[in-house]
Nucleic acid binder design. Structure first.
Lengths: 153, 153
DNA sequence: CCGTTTGACTTCATGCTTGAACTCATGAAC
DNA sequence: GTTCATGAGTTCAAGCATGAAGTCAAACGG
């Protein structure tokens, strides 16, 4: 079964997408890493917790919201727990779930890191795009977030 | 100097971009990793070499083309060399540069991996987007590739 | 009840990535 | 010429990510 190759237009979208994927993580993570000692994924995790009701979420919901695997999240939250930013406990209503809750110290950390992140996002992305580009980007991302069925990975 | 926060429209572009960055690498890398033992960055590196004149490039050009750091590239190319996919030698015209050249065996490897990659790109990206989306994506990526000055990282 | 299944985590070994600190070739300054 | 400065590339240690295999709690079937 020969795979259908890409047309020129598709190829341009492809190269663009790949370069975004390879380039932006480093650019967006740099300031967070240097000045707050956080990875981008760390920041997104803390940020999602800080916006949740009572600043807590089930691990599996958090994994979904951060687009990460449960394995990855488990490791990250373990490190947070060791630094005192998060506490973990079984969900009282169903012991199969684990709840991760942001501590006051964890909240302080997000608040410290947020301006660094916003500034980096402006510098490397938002401020380089027109409003129409921004709408297109949001639309494109929404379409790609939907994962096709029949996929293992 | 307080950082300017994001408007709602900017925030949607931002969340979209972040989710792309966190989600797509894993999806695009899965098939390559499972069936060819390559990372996405590995594949892009081999692919760039295979398309270059005489299938060879200076390390620093290759780093630029793959959007990677020289450190990263050096490690990756060292592994390629050990597997016999690449040979390295100093540029005869200027000993400060190092040239990395794809071997026949390395070319075979790219040829083997290419259909896996194209299929994954179709499944997870291209085929989910309209032609207008594809044009927008290429345009957006082109704008973001331009790195702002005054940046360390 | 008791075994089985399901799904939510956790752990661990392995491999990759990163920044800091090197080495080395060349061109420039004196 | 000798010393410096520059920039390419490498190495190393530390930390992070991943998939496979494990644990454990609740639901389900008989």
């Amino acid at each position: 079964m020969p795979t259908k190759w890409l047309t020129d237009a598709e190829k341009e979208a492809w190269t663009g997408l790949i370069s975004l994927i390879l380039l932006l993580p480093g650019r967006l993570e740099g300031p967070l890493q240097r000045e707050a000692g956080l990875t981008l994924f760390d920041y997104m995790t803390l940020s999602q917790m800080s916006e949740a009701p009572d600043r807590r979420l089930r691990m599996s919901e958090l994994a979904f919201l951060t687009s990460g695997s449960l394995t990855r999240l488990s490791n990250v939250v373990k490190r947070f727990e060791q630094r005192g930013w998060v506490i973990k406990y079984p969900d009282p209503s169903d012991g199969r779930y684990t709840i991760a809750e942001l501590t006051a110290s964890g909240y302080d950390k997000v608040a410290e890191a947020a301006p660094l992140h916003v500034e980096a996002v402006r510098l490397h992305a938002i401020d380089l795009l027109s409003p129409a580009d921004q709408r297109a980007l949001a639309r494109i991302a929404a379409r790609l977030r939907v994962r096709p069925q029949d996929v293992r990975n």
